[in-house]
Computed example of a mutant assay.
Amino acid sequence: MKVLIIDDELDICYLLSGILKQQHYSTRYVTSLSDAEIALKNDPPSIIFLDNHLPDGLGIDFIQFIKSRYPVSKIIMITAHDSPAEHRKAYAEGVDVFIPKPFTKEKIYSAINEITA
């Protein structure tokens, strides 16, 4: 299963990639929404890990773009901005799972199990 990580923090990209590769997922990462558009067009993934605060915009505003063009891709939002309002907006936009940072390996596996079950 292919996974795309969209996060501007390289250490998060490396950490998530490592966690996911332990479960035999194929991972790629990008650090901006503009790079995410290209990555999605070239090779749509099954799962997308999406940060909210990126250098060229908010991930939460990118959810509808993903859902309208890649409806089978599941979105897991990961963000340090973990307010009830952020949760509501993310789910209203179509996110499948919301995980606050910092996260654990168990939370990542749980989120994947939830969307692939």
Rank of each mutant, 00 (worst) to 15 (best):
A85D: 10
P71W: 13
R69Y: 09
D96E: 06
H24N: 13
P55D: 04
V72T: 14
E86T: 12
M77E: 04
L40M: 13
N42Y: 03
D8I: 06
K67S: 07
V97I: 15
D11Q: 11
D7K: 10
S46V: 11
L4N: 01
Q23N: 05
G18E: 11
R28W: 03
Y14R: 14
G18K: 10
I75K: 09
I99C: 06
P102V: 06
K41Q: 15
M1Y: 12
K107L: 06
S34G: 00
D7T: 10
L15M: 08
I108T: 04
L15V: 03
E86C: 08
M1G: 13
R28F: 02
F103R: 08
K21H: 01
I60P: 08
I47K: 06
R88A: 14
N52C: 01
R69P: 05
Y70T: 12
I115E: 02
K105H: 09
A80C: 07
L10S: 13
S17Y: 09
A80E: 11
P102N: 06
Y25P: 02
A85W: 03
A117T: 13
E37D: 03
A39L: 04
D35K: 13
T31V: 10
E106M: 11
K41N: 13
P71C: 14
A117L: 11
G18M: 12
L50T: 00
P100V: 06
S83A: 04
D11L: 13
V95E: 02
P100T: 08
S17D: 10
D51W: 00
K107Q: 14
S73L: 09
V97N: 07
D82S: 15
K41S: 15
I6P: 02
V3N: 13
E93A: 14
A36W: 01
A90W: 08
V97L: 08
E114P: 00
G18R: 12
K21P: 00
S17L: 10
I99F: 07
K107W: 04
T116V: 07
I108N: 03
D7A: 10
A39V: 00
E114W: 01
E106Q: 15
Y14A: 11
L54V: 00
K101S: 02
D35V: 05
D35T: 08
T116M: 09
P102I: 05
K2I: 08
K74A: 07
K101G: 01
S110Y: 11
L10R: 15
L58G: 02
F103N: 08
F62W: 07
I19Y: 12
I48G: 02
Q22E: 15
D11A: 11
T104W: 04
D8T: 05
L16G: 00
I112M: 14
F103K: 08
F49G: 01
Q64H: 07
A36T: 00
I66G: 00
S34C: 06
R69S: 13
L4T: 02
L50P: 01
E114N: 06
A36L: 01
S17V: 07
I63V: 14
L54F: 00
V30E: 15
A92E: 15
V72R: 14
P44I: 02
E9N: 10
L16K: 01
L40D: 04
S83G: 05
T31Q: 15
D82F: 07
F65H: 10
